[in-house]
Each structure stands twice: as structure tokens, then as C-alpha cells.
């Protein structure tokens, strides 16, 4: 199917437009972060870059604290959800557990829940048990969305393991735990990595639950929102903080594109 020359030109122009539209906000954030907006002048496209805003953000202990908090929350959330979902996905696939349909429906339902249905009662419950405004409390609350996400992906990746491999292991007298650790895990490792990547990105960027369940120890997106109230002269710092927040995930996306794409497509049931 060779498109006509006109068709090909329309297509190229269209792709070019979408590329520019996709990249422009990133470009403009870099511009804002490196431009001295304190003068309050018109937007400038040619200027001498300054990195004062990054220095200001970097010396803001609240923002640096939020980076540490976000990292801890990401690590805790990934560990908790993988530790509980990897054995569960293994058992569902390997032993064809009967209540699977019911649990799969529950997972689906949990994923549909609006954030505040969970965040409002969690705000009260975590205060009662002393976990409000802590990384562990937040990581626990995230499980409502991360367990279903991890289960959806892991069930698919475990199903891709040929049953004969596990059969052979059980004939050799391997226990279930040994079969999981020695036979399945090496095969499913890329799938587990993909799952961990998607959970980490989601949690790093999450807004609603982090806003509800933290106060003095906010995560990065909530700390950035603190710049919202300021006047326009703080735009450079807002942009610099945004870039610092984006940087790890965007750099990661460039190198782990295949993992992310395979995770997104697996999640969508393709």
C-alpha cells in the first residue's frame, strides 16, 4: 500500500505537527527554568540561560525532602505489591485456582474506584493507627490500585510460561516454592521488571492520595504544587522543580521504552 505523494506529504506534515505539539511543553518548561522571569517581561525565545532556579530549588530543604520521601514511597510500594502479587499470580496460573473469577472481578472493581473513595476514609483510619503522613501508610494505601495493576500484568506474564516447564520440574520432585523460585522466576523476570517499572512511575507521579495522606512529608508532585500559590516571578523555580521531578522518569522512559510499551499493551488486554 504505497500512499500517493500528496498523501505522503499530508502524513508527514501531520506527524511533524504532533511531534512539535508533544515536545513544546517540555521545551517551554526548560526555557522557563533557565530564563530569568523576575523582570516579568514578555516570553523570550533567545536569551542567556541561567541556572539560578535549579540552585534555588536544590537548596529548598522541603523540596529535597520530598524527593527522598517519594523515593522511599516508590520502593516500599513496589516491594509490598510484588511480594504479595508474585506468589498469587503464580498460584492462579499454576494451580488453576477456582475462585479466580471472583478475585479477578474484585481486582477490576478495585481499579475502578475513585481515589477519594479510598483517600477520605484512609485519612481517618491512618490517623487512628499513627500512619498518617508516613511513607509506609501511603505505600499501604497505594496497594488498592497497585495490587490490581500488578496482578493484571503478572497473570499475563505467568500465563506465557509453557506449562511443560513446570510439569518437568514437578516430576523432578521440586516443591511448589522451588518451582516458583527456580523455574518461573528466571523466565518471568522481564515481566516482573515491567510491572515494577509501571508501579514505580505511577507512584512517583501520583497526586490525589498523596495529597490526602501527607502533610509535613509530601511527595514530589505535592511539593511542586506548593509553588502554585506564588506569583509569576516564581515560575522559574516551578519549572525547575518540575524538570527535576520529570527527569528520572523521562530518562528512564527513553531507555526502558520497550518495557513500558509492553506493560501498557499487556494491561490493555492486547
Amino acid at each position: 500500500m504505497r500512499p500517493s505523494p500528496t498523501g505522503r506529504m499530508i502524513r508527514s506534515v501531520f506527524i511533524a505537527c504532533t511531534v512539535v505539539a508533544t515536545l513544546f511543553p517540555f521545551y517551554w518548561t526548560i526555557t522557563l527554568a533557565t530564563q530569568n522571569t523576575a523582570t516579568g517581561g514578555e516570553p523570550e525565545f533567545l536569551y542567556v540561560p541561567s541556572f539560578d532556579a535549579f540552585a534555588a530549588v536544590w537548596s529548598n530543604s522541603d523540596f529535597v525532602g520530598s524527593l527522598v520521601m517519594s523515593m522511599i514511597v516508590v520502593v516500599l510500594t513496589v516491594i509490598i505489591s510484588l511480594v504479595v502479587t508474585v506468589p498469587a499470580a503464580y498460584a492462579f496460573v499454576r494451580f488453576e485456582l477456582r475462585p479466580r473469577t471472583g478475585i479477578v472481578l474484585w481486582l477490576l472493581l478495585a481499579y475502578l474506584l475513585p481515589d477519594f473513595l479510598i483517600a477520605i476514609p484512609m485519612y481517618v483510619l491512618l490517623q487512628n493507627v499513627g500512619l498518617y503522613d508516613t511513607s509506609f501508610g501511603l505505600a499501604l494505601a497505594y496497594q488498592v490500585f497497585m495490587v490490581p495493576l500488578a496482578m493484571w500484568l503478572l497473570l499475563r506474564f505467568f500465563e506465557d510460561v509453557p506449562a511443560e516447564v513446570a510439569e518437568a520440574a514437578s516430576i523432578d520432585g521440586a516443591s511448589r516454592m522451588q518451582t516458583l523460585l527456580r523455574v518461573y522466576l528466571p523466565v518471568v523476570r522481564p515481566g516482573i521488571a515491567t510491572t515494577a517499572v509501571l508501579i514505580a512511575i505511577t507512584v512517583w507521579n501520583e497526586v490525589t492520595i498523596a495529597l490526602s495522606l501527607t502533610l509535613n512529608n509530601p511527595t514530589v508532585p505535592i511539593a511542586i504544587a506548593a509553588y502554585k500559590g506564588y506569583a509569576s516571578i516564581q515560575w522559574d523555580q516551578l519549572a525547575a522543580a518540575s524538570l527535576i521531578a520529570m527527569a528520572p522518569v523521562v530518562i528512564f522512559a527513553i531507555f526502558a521504552q520497550k518495557h513500558i510499551v509492553s506493560g501498557l499493551t499487556a494491561g490493555a488486554g492486547k
Partner: peptide
């Protein structure tokens, strides 16, 4: 192109909102 088009997905909704507001 695929990497480029997933870049916006990697950004927090809060950052998306603030950058567009500016």
C-alpha cells in the same frame, strides 16, 4: 516516535497542570 509519544505519560498530572497553567 514511540518513545516521544509516551513522554507526556511519564509526567505527573500535577506537573502537567502547572506547566499548562503557566
Amino acid at each position: 516516535l514511540r518513545t516521544l509519544f509516551i513522554l507526556p505519560l511519564m509526567v505527573s498530572g500535577m506537573v502537567v497542570a502547572l506547566v499548562w497553567k503557566v
